[in-house]
Design a protein around this nucleic acid. Structure first.
Lengths: 198, 198
DNA sequence: GTCTATATTGCGATAGAC
DNA sequence: GTCTATCGCAATATAGAC
């Protein structure tokens, strides 16, 4: 059974960890944001790191659903698989705006929670995107000299970087007010065109 | 005149800030790594933040050189400009392996040094890449419906993500032992193919 | 379950000797 | 220039009341 304090901590800790990073957030700050006492963080989560891990698990939960959905849809045409991935990133980011930053933090400087949460999800996502590209190359739709691992990193990097850097890039070179979906589609267009067989 | 202690601090602080992030590194740690006393950090740099800013400036210095070189070469064919950018990223990362991580940290959660260092360099780099794409579109080589700002973010994201995530991605899905240049070339091939006029 | 109070450690920062 | 010593404070963590 989940208490109110527990839920509040999970809710208010997410943006703090996402915006300032694990090290830069203090337990006092977390307690104050959730309007509970410091002791409760130890009572429920065993400390800052435990709370952080719980936040990660809660934020990543929607991805499990998405992965299930994708597995249910396959097999599908490779081009559609690529588009689905990009749309999935947009969708997930809309539903939980802190997730991409948390993920990015873990990729840049992994904490003790790396294996528990990140590897569990990220490796699956990249593996499934990688598989889509491999199929496309095997069936002759994509170029046959395509290295699917590098191509995977390329597409994933484009999508991630956009959502991570967007707020800041806008501050010194205002982007046109397109939606995130429009960006995702443009990325996919360039990418698919780039890997298609001539 | 640069003292030995000053130089040592700049040298040993760079990897610490890059790997653990500004907040997670303590002044004691920095002093110990450089084998000098804490007080010297205040004497020379006025504190942790001052040292951090000095590290950023030192690490970013090679970029100024690269920017000069590019300005000297232009005008050039747009395709060549794109390739030059990607090669430049590889080159810079080889010479100062901490730079990309420091940059990434600043993009994710900007410190007080953001304007001083980051905006000065990053905005120039992205602007020049953006200009190359605009020229290419104007001269009919690239697609005419290309949004050069989004395309810029896409390419920059691919390159950055590769160097940031590579060490970790390799740990759970070993990449083929290609060189960084090979990756850069593949990225550029996909990207150029993707934005070229049919 | 939730709080207040407190122990303890480590931090950033400075003063002053050399 | 460089160090040692130390101050004040904020951080993590726990004990014990309710």
């Amino acid at each position: 059974m989940e208490t109110d304090a527990q839920a509040r901590l999970l809710e208010f800790a997410a943006p703090l960890f996402a915006q300032k990073g694990f090290a830069a957030v203090s337990i006092r700050e977390l307690a104050q944001a959730a309007d509970v006492s410091i002791a409760l963080i130890y009572y429920y989560f065993g400390g800052k790191e435990g709370l952080y891990q719980a936040v990660l698990e809660a934020q990543f939960a929607p991805i499990e659903v998405l992965l299930e959905k994708v597995r249910g849809l396959s097999p599908m045409p490779p081009e559609e698989g690529v588009r689905l991935y990009a749309r999935g990133v947009v969708e997930v980011h809309r539903r939980s705006p802190y997730l991409l930053r948390l993920m990015n933090s873990e990729l840049v400087k992994p904490t003790a929670c790396f294996d528990v949460v990140i590897q569990k999800y990220i490796s699956q996502i990249l593996a499934s995107l990688s598989a889509v590209l491999r199929e496309g190359a095997a069936s002759g739709i994509f170029k046959d000299n395509l290295n699917e691992q590098y191509a995977t990193i390329s597409l994933a990097g484009s999508m991630n970087f956009f959502f991570i850097a967007k707020p800041l890039l806008m501050s010194f070179a205002p982007l046109p007010e397109f939606t995130d979906e429009v960006y995702a589609d443009q990325i996919v267009d360039i990418f698919l065109h780039g890997i298609m067989r001539p």
